[in-house]
Write a protein that binds this DNA or RNA. Structure first.
Lengths: 140, 140
DNA sequence: TCTTTTACTTGCTTTTTGCAAGTAATACAA
DNA sequence: TTGTATTACTTGCAAAAAGCAAGTAAAAGA
């Protein structure tokens, strides 16, 4: 039911990314997956931006086809599926962090914590590895 | 003719960016503007991805409304308009560079030069400042 | 057994995209 | 000065994608 991908419009490396996540929703799913620790359909649906279930469903299929996520059965509950990021997906963390920093410093009404901006400006590398580990870099 | 912006879906800093450039075309225009030295409507239209003129036109209006670009009359030719990036726009350079690095390292058919990847891996900061200056960082 | 929960799907309307063609103003060449 | 290009768009229409509300199947829990 999900369209087969068109041939890429170009071989530009920026375009390569845009063909996968160049829309208003996909990067929000990746944000939830990589930064917010979300795993299930229901988790993603519960974000502030209120993604529709049909769109979420379609994006999860595409992300899997693109090799950015994988399904994982949940032993304790056969109804649930967990979506886990691949290595290629985790490599997108710097993109998300740069976008978040730009938004945090350019949106006058941003909801981003000051600690994030401070942490980025103090030591970007440390922030990145902390986020990659899933630890909260604003602590310690 | 260009829609008034909806209220933002959230105050997430990543979402803030997506509301401006969360589509398949806007970041390509910014790439051309910030990285390829393009300035005019015709320049943008000539990219490999072949953006339609109505979409390009609409995106330029939006980018101006979002404060990312400004129009500049061309003295020598009254037909032409040059589009120049604002400071907020130039602050998106790291986002573009991270996307380009990800694409260059994850697309098996990437057209990105190896020198870009090497330059990024050797010294990301230097690459960023070289690109901000408009100098070619693969030289010297 | 009945009610919830989870992960979707379906149908329909609205919005956005994509394509082809057309246009107005200026520049340029004969 | 007249005709041809060039530049930056606009218009119209078809196709694709997004958004919304409702429905469903399988498993869980009471």
């Amino acid at each position: 039911m999900v369209k087969t991908p068109n041939p890429p419009r170009s071989h530009c490396p920026i375009n390569f990314g845009l063909e996968i996540f160049g829309d208003k929703w996909t990067l929000l799913i990746l944000r939830d997956l990589l930064l917010m620790g979300k795993k299930s359909f229901k988790d993603f649906q519960a974000s502030d931006e209120r993604i529709a279930s049909n769109i979420l469903s379609e994006r999860l299929v595409r992300l899997e086809q693109s090799g950015l996520i994988q399904q994982q059965a949940v032993k304790a509950d056969a109804r649930q599926i967990h979506y886990v990021p691949t290595v290629a997906c985790r490599a997108l963390l710097p993109v998300l962090v740069e976008m978040a920093y730009w938004g945090a410093t350019h949106d006058p009404k941003t909801g981003a914590p000051k600690s994030f901006v401070r942490s980025y400006e103090r030591d970007r590398d440390r922030l990145l590895s902390a986020l990659a580990q899933g630890t909260d870099p604003t602590k310690s």
